[in-house]
Amino acid sequence: MNLVGILSLLVSSTFVYSTPLVFTALGGVYSENSGITNVGLEGIMTMGAFSSVVFNLTFASTFGKLTPWLGLLVGGVVGLLFSLLHAVATINFHADHVISGTVLNLMAPPLGVFLVKAIYDKGQTENITQSFGYFSFPGLADIPVIGPILFKNTSAPAWVAIIVSIILWWVLYKTRFGLRLRACGENPQAADTMGVNVYGMRYAGVLISGFLGGIGGAVFAQAISGNFSISTIVGQGFMALAAMIFGKWNPIGAMLASLFFGFAQSISIIGNQLPFFNHIPSVYMQIAPYVITIVILVLFFGKSVAPAADGQNYIKSK
């Protein structure tokens, strides 16, 4: 295998594995910047994966090639609805954020499998027929060297995810909405005094995370697993959470961290096809994202990286 071949294989599989993480980690960024800790990303992804697969199986013949993209929207909407539980519990009902998030993680897999059994009368779904295949950008793919590595036979959702992360960075740091959202995560009392609707902003944060987490799950189901079962989403949500922390609660940072974790994941899967990497036991690549996250947290001790009021309930005084 020549160098360009190796690189293009690496880049395309990194893209495939990191896309679900990018979307979900971006969701985490929005939720936590509004002040609501969201460890329920795993559960939200599960619901997104479940609903997109059901949609894809049902409507593949109607929408053809468009099906997986519409599946993303369906996954997003279902994820948003599911995250409503977390929003109501933490914002209105004073629930502990970690417990409420854990409830999402406990609830989603059995709910998904229960519904699959109720609908299809078996424990896992059929494989979908319309999945995200490889995509070549017309024109760009013909550029020498860069073309084959970045734009030929690559993952289209990955490029969407990268663009979305840039837009979301702009929204979070350059718009009035973003400023208000961050204010609610840093100091809800002050934000409230200035007339910001803290509850409303926090709802926005959690629901955005539900939408993006649902999309993340839908991407995973329609690009990687191809069906839905109890073992479709196992840990990707937590890895996205790790990427969000590694990315220091910043959309661009979360995207880059997700790309890195996607790289680590794809190395542990395709590593044996590559020179050099085939000598490293895959366990090191499997645990790398998690070890790195702990190391990052330790290194950042003392510098406040998380939004100051992240994880704290805000109770408006009457």
Binding site: S100, L106, P109, P110, V113, F114, K117
Partner: peptide
């Protein structure tokens, strides 16, 4: 009846414990 209903009930119980304020 699918076994998963058990885990759903357990998760729901914990949800209500979490919102014990209400």
């Amino acid at each position: 009846i699918p076994y998963e209903i058990v885990s759903i009930v357990i998760a729901a119980i914990i949800f209500f414990v979490a919102i014990q304020y209400v």
